[in-house]
Design a protein around this nucleic acid. Structure first.
Lengths: 195, 195
DNA sequence: GTCTATAAGCTGATAGAC
DNA sequence: GTCTATCAGCTTATAGAC
């Protein structure tokens, strides 16, 4: 990957973020050096600082971009006539969106503690926005009488935790197709919150 | 915490592991140095190597001790007459055991990738033993006709993922008591696997 | 925009004095 | 069993040549 001198501002930036994404996901933010990232891209370490002020900003940008994409995609979902349909849609969306970005998802919740307090607060706010979308569905379902929950906030966190569990074991080409996984989880979520 | 010379083999070892536990849980294995651990204990860095051959072994021992305690406690649970009672007991046990050891639990699943392949395989085997205990309950319940699951293995992982979610938000002295938390989760788990 | 060279400091681990 | 001193190598980030 060693390269000679030249000007590549358009492509080096994305390549740096992609290399950081792979390496952070695999070895963890703290265990990865700027030199490793540079080597993966094929530049010297000093060149990275034309694209990021420091290592922390690299991590923050990866996490912020991911959370903003997640929120934008969730907000773009078609509205549904009833809470049950909305929940089914949310479960399917959540599983598929996260399965398509396993590295971003892994980083987004493994590396929270490596953010500065300021950056952490911003990522947390985005995460709460996303949780609130699900909580809104659950509360609406309670009002409709189709869901029965002892505590809507905990139910929200429990559903997300259950769905995120997929990431720890699912591998494309394994025993189950994505459609099957989606059906299995939907069955459990539906029953868990049912009246 | 600075100390003068002396012989303390009986207490220094546990103190080192406790310091490593706190620091690894807070900052992550890769971000914590042997000097930081030594400073927390009140010895010089070189002294640590009387108790551990290296940093990796310190992490491995913390994780192995935790998993073995978890398995021993789970195996010591009184046997139940029916799968529903066994599942209720398992849910209560899991929540309470994990809430009492938030740092060990956090390390046990955040630092898996920092284990050597050999150590990782051993911890994974213990984790699988624990999952198998829950899976046995779910399969027994299916045979009894009280549970209905599309896939027992995924249901096992989903229930554990949901319960582990407690760790991310529960704080002692918060809005809910441990008993309430237990009841809320039991309600959702029970319904999720119900026939 | 990338390079080389460097600053200033930290890392895990070891050797030998006491 | 703990200390001090040390090794060899790594770290993030910057300065200045090209």
């Amino acid at each position: 990957m060693a390269r000679t001198q030249g000007s590549h501002s358009d492509i080096t930036g994305p390549r740096i973020r992609k290399a950081a994404l792979h390496l952070f996901a695999r070895y963890g933010y703290a265990a990865v050096s700027m030199r490793q990232i540079a080597a993966e891209v094929g530049v010297q370490a000093g060149a990275l600082y034309n694209y990021t002020p420091d290592k922390q900003s690299l991590l923050y940008r990866l996490m912020r971009d991911h959370m903003e994409e997640l929120l934008a995609a969730q907000k773009a979902l078609p509205s549904q006539d009833c809470a049950l349909d909305a929940l089914r849609q949310f479960v399917g969306f959540h599983i598929r969106f996260h399965m398509q970005r396993p590295e971003e998802v892994f980083i987004a919740y493994m590396e929270l503690r490596n953010l500065t307090p300021e950056n952490f607060a911003e990522i947390e706010a985005l995460r709460r926005d996303y949780e609130d979308a699900l909580q809104g569905i659950l509360v609406a379902g309670q009002a409709e009488g189709v869901f029965a929950l002892q505590d809507a906030k905990i139910a929200t966190l429990a559903v997300i935790a259950m769905l995120n569990g997929v990431m720890t074991w699912y591998r494309a080409g394994g025993r189950l197709s994505l459609d099957q996984v989606e059906r299995i989880y939907w069955d459990m979520v539906r029953k868990a919150v049912a009246a």
